[in-house]
Amino acid sequence: MIPFDYERATDAAGAVATVARNPNARFLAGGTNLVDHLKLGVSEPELLVDVSRLPFGEVQEQDGVVRAGASVRNSELAAHPLIRQRFPVLAQALLAGASGQLRNLATTGGNLLQRTRCPYFQDVTTPCNKREPGSGCSAISGHNRDMAILGSSEQCVATHPSDMAVAMTALDAVVRIQGVDGERTVPVAEFHRLPGDSPERDTVLQHGELITAVDIPGAAPISAYRKVRDRASYAFALVSVAAVADVAGGVVQDVRLALGGVAHKPWRARRAEAALRGSRATEQAFREAAEAELADAGPLAGNAFKVPMAKNTIVAALRDLTGEQL
């Protein structure tokens, strides 16, 4: 039994101040990830500050922007009429993640803050630079079937597990953050970090900063999420693609793509987007764009299959959206 103190927050400012002044304090919301880490010994906080009852549990629209509060449960967000009508890709991504029971508990803010499911990160008996900086990365020469093929470093090859975050990245969503010095915003595409020399830092959040909401601009009625995994449910992505497209007269006017299961963060496929804009919506164009995006892939011994899988998944997702038939 690892002892810790528990406090229930009554306001956001107080919660932020409490965690900010204690380097060993953590926020607790749904707890679907943090509680696992407490059990495994991966995380050993002195204090948990429960923010689940703060007033961040609504989905609202204002001036064309849909705001999802940080405490909105994944199941509620997926079922919300605004999300289903305007952002199908997000509803599909949410429903592709975890299980029904977990989606009923997991929150919007907590989903963004999921840590990797790398088996070495979760096993405290093995070296892991993310868990213990400087100890080494066991996955590079170990079991690395599920690891990254893009943006990794010699320090870490883990992947980010969220489905929701991949869709949010393709939607140009923005994270609202409260800290001791006030509020700031960060695009979801810039919220998560590549490992570099500091793999222990998953995001750009500073200690004590609290996610309060995520803003999703505009609408993406022509959008979809495609996920490749080992079984039909309750499995993390080997590769996933969130796609948003605007096609008129058979020409791609605009497109936004994000990949999951391939990097330390949701991977915005900007090379593929640039290749597709202004091109004919054909399978050949889709394949050329996918090739461009994966040109710098660096697979490990056990996950080279992810490179063609990612290319094929990009093509399939775009073909689904545009109606291009083989």
Rank of each mutant, 00 (worst) to 15 (best):
H207N: 07
G196V: 00
I149E: 12
S99I: 08
I149K: 12
C118G: 06
N144P: 09
G97C: 10
P127D: 08
D123N: 15
G179C: 03
V204F: 02
V175G: 04
T185D: 06
S152R: 14
V166F: 05
R115N: 02
A173V: 01
S99L: 01
A91V: 03
F191I: 00
Q101W: 02
F121A: 08
S152K: 15
E132I: 12
L113P: 00
L150Y: 08
Q178M: 15
K130E: 03
A106Y: 00
E132V: 15
L102N: 01
T116H: 10
R117N: 11
S198K: 13
N129M: 01
S138C: 08
E154L: 15
S99Q: 05
A96P: 01
R184K: 07
Q92D: 13
L94A: 09
A139R: 03
C118R: 08
A79H: 10
D163A: 09
L102Y: 01
G179D: 08
T159H: 09
R145K: 14
A96T: 07
V180P: 02
G208A: 09
L171S: 01
R86H: 12
I83L: 12
R115P: 03
A189I: 00
P195M: 05
Q122Y: 15
C156A: 14
E154I: 03
R103S: 11
G151T: 02
H207W: 04
N104G: 15
C137V: 04
C128T: 08
Q101L: 13
S135P: 10
V89D: 07
Q92T: 10
F121R: 10
G109P: 10
L90W: 06
C137L: 08
R184C: 04
S198M: 05
V188T: 11
G134P: 02
R145H: 09
Q155C: 06
E132N: 14
A189Y: 00
L150D: 09
T108H: 06
R115K: 08
S141R: 14
L171H: 01
P119I: 12
P88Q: 00
V157P: 10
M164Y: 07
A148Y: 05
P161V: 02
R193V: 01
P195H: 03
F191H: 04
R117W: 09
A91T: 00
D163R: 09
H80G: 10
G196P: 00
A93Q: 02
D181I: 01
N144H: 13
G182I: 04
